[in-house]
Simulated scan of single mutants.
Amino acid sequence: MTTANKKELSPEQRDELLRLLKARFEKNRNRHKNLDWADVQKKLDANPEKLWVLDDMEVTGGEPDVVGYDSKTGEYIFYDCSAESPKERRSFCYDREALELRKDNRPENNVDAAAAAMGVELLTEEQYRQLQQIGPFDLKTSSWIQTPAAIRKLGGALFCDRRYDTVFVYHNGASSYYSARGFRGSLRV
């Protein structure tokens, strides 16, 4: 529900999301060695607006989980950790410019707008490779990643996947979209 332009979960939604995140955290200890759920929950309790974002990540199929801690900023880092690219975030072209260039068969949305609406950052190539260090992701799908301005200026965009136990970085026209390509987000709390 929205209260005075502030997105908040109901107490029931909040409790259910925290239960789910804690269970995922405990089940996947390899993603966040030496981190304690109680510390993560304290951060979440102090930043309730971030729960709205995590809920959106969850609802769209991202299965967010803690993948690290930034000791410089004191923030926990969440990534979408679904085995495949989040199901409800597929078939989007890269950005608004690419969407507007498509005259026929336009996709429903674009990655930049969807990520901004959710409140997440699109993974960088480095972050995508870090994600692949904690498990095999995108074995059947692919995920758009942040694209350098020089490539985007020429009409291209980058995406990644994992095949043959190797992470591949590819390029495509930014206006392209595929049912097996989505995007993964990151959130700092």
Rank of each mutant, 00 (worst) to 15 (best):
N172W: 11
D138M: 07
R152P: 11
D65K: 07
V67M: 05
D80L: 02
L122K: 13
L17D: 12
S10K: 12
P148C: 11
S143W: 01
C160T: 11
A116Q: 10
L35N: 08
R102T: 03
N172T: 15
V53N: 06
R106E: 08
E121P: 00
G135S: 05
P136E: 13
A23L: 12
R184A: 01
A174V: 02
P107I: 07
E97W: 11
G61R: 04
I145H: 00
K43A: 14
A23M: 06
K22L: 04
L122A: 06
R19F: 12
D112F: 10
G185S: 02
K33D: 09
R162G: 01
N105R: 15
M118G: 05
L17C: 08
L187G: 05
E100D: 11
K87E: 12
R184Y: 01
R102N: 10
N30Y: 06
E26W: 00
Y76V: 03
D36R: 15
E84T: 11
K42A: 15
L99C: 03
M118L: 11
V40M: 09
G62F: 02
G119P: 13
A157T: 07
E100I: 13
D39L: 08
F168D: 00
M1R: 08
S82T: 01
K22G: 01
S10C: 07
R96W: 14
R96E: 15
L187S: 07
S179G: 02
K27C: 03
K87V: 09
N28P: 03
K42S: 12
L122Y: 13
T147H: 00
S179Y: 00
M57Y: 12
R181F: 00
P48Y: 07
I77L: 14
T141C: 06
L187F: 14
S82M: 00
E8S: 07
G182D: 08
H32K: 08
A113F: 08
K42P: 02
Y177S: 06
M57R: 07
I77R: 09
Q146G: 02
D161F: 00
E126H: 04
K43V: 08
K153T: 15
D138C: 06
G173K: 01
I77Y: 03
G62S: 09
N30T: 13
H171S: 09
L101C: 06
F25P: 04
W144V: 02
D95R: 08
G62E: 10
